[in-house]
Design a protein around this nucleic acid. Structure first.
Lengths: 204, 204
DNA sequence: AAGAATTTCAATCATTTGATTAAAATACTT
DNA sequence: AAGTATTTTAATCAAATGATTGAAATTCTT
């Protein structure tokens, strides 16, 4: 009861700060992000940031956990699905992942560079990593091409999906392409990558 | 004459600072790197950093330019070589690049995340980017599979080569592999990727 | 409407950080 | 060896930064 209408305000300000923090952390990374940048972006007093989140680090952990989840949620449920054959799984994986990445273009570079900068934390992510290597997707790859380490295929598939978004600043200027052209190319890859992977599996 | 023996000392201290800066910048990124970390790492007085390099930013530019060069030097001369047929070029590209990356495992994530954090600078790199899309390698890809944008192949090939190094923290825990196992897998990829790319080109 | 709880703010603190300075130490020239 | 130029150091500065405080404003309860 004491909480009913309060909760509304809570969400409003707290979410405003979290959204601003997400934006600033994603742009500059944890180390270069300033709590004042976040406060300005959220249009709130600096003290409110500490009032709601106690510290820069705690706020970052919340943002980071959400991003980590987003990066893995698009792939884990699919590749661990036991009742889906390889070809269909591959097709859905590519389509879902590329769609998500088009909407979140600098998610991968953010997550991967922050992981590199704070390798100590992220024991939680290790869990997701292990789930991958024991997934039915990897097992199916192994059954299809028994004499090659399925992780070799897995790294290649994920690389083909994710890497264009990480290397975008280079590729985009390389091709002189604007955002629309880049996105169109990513759309095209939803069709190409499954064809290519099948060719790789048959060659492997 | 005034410079003869002086030069020896110059190189020693200046190089010590540059080496320390390289290490710290690569570990933490520009924004989170502290000049005092660099001075400590180099075992020199903080003032010497500014004596030799004027500022943190100038020092960073030197380090960054070297890293950028290293990242592109391993690939540009090869893919722009007009007198090498596609298959051989691909084979050499994969071998050279993977060898270089095994020796410089966090080069890609460092360069790519710094480019993202300071997109304004790096007009120099755009040059390298353009050289790629007009390279004979890309032209040869286009001749081999005319109905597909050769940059689609190019992104996939570079992605298969580079991405495992960027995603290493995840893949390594995913597989429970130590550094030696990871490196062995990268060696194995020197053989696999050319086979796979050929299969892709034939399927394309 | 009065009183209590929550939220917001301006001001301020203690550290950290990039950079400078002036003096000391070292190396070089003659 | 004396004098000059170069390199190194300790001390310090001003600005930036994460965080706190106490009071003001707002919202909620009764």
């Amino acid at each position: 009861m004491t909480k009913r209408l309060k909760a509304v305000a809570d969400i409003s300000t707290e979410e405003k700060i979290k959204a601003a923090a997400t934006k600033v952390f994603m742009q500059k990374g944890y180390g270069a992000a300033r709590t004042r940048d976040i406060a300005d972006e959220a249009e709130i007093n600096l003290a409110l940031l500490n009032y709601y989140f106690r510290s820069k680090e705690k706020l970052f952990e919340i943002v980071m956990l959400e991003k980590l989840h987003k990066l893995f949620a698009a792939v884990l449920p699919l590749i661990t699905d036991e009742g889906l054959e390889l070809d269909k799984k591959l097709e859905l994986l590519v389509e879902n992942y590329i769609d998500m990445l088009i909407e979140n273009q600098d998610l991968p570079i953010f997550v991967l560079s922050e992981i590199r900068n704070h390798p100590e934390k992220f024991a939680k992510m290790m869990q997701a990593g292990s789930l991958m290597s024991s997934s039915s997707f990897v097992r199916q790859l192994h059954e299809r091409v028994p004499h090659i380490n399925p992780m070799q295929f897995f790294m290649s598939i994920i690389g083909m999906i994710i890497f264009p978004f990480i290397g975008k600043p280079i590729f985009q200027t390389a091709t002189g392409a604007d955002a629309a052209v880049f996105n169109a190319m990513m759309q095209e890859r939803k069709r190409l990558i499954p064809i290519w992977v099948n060719a790789m599996l048959n060659a492997g």
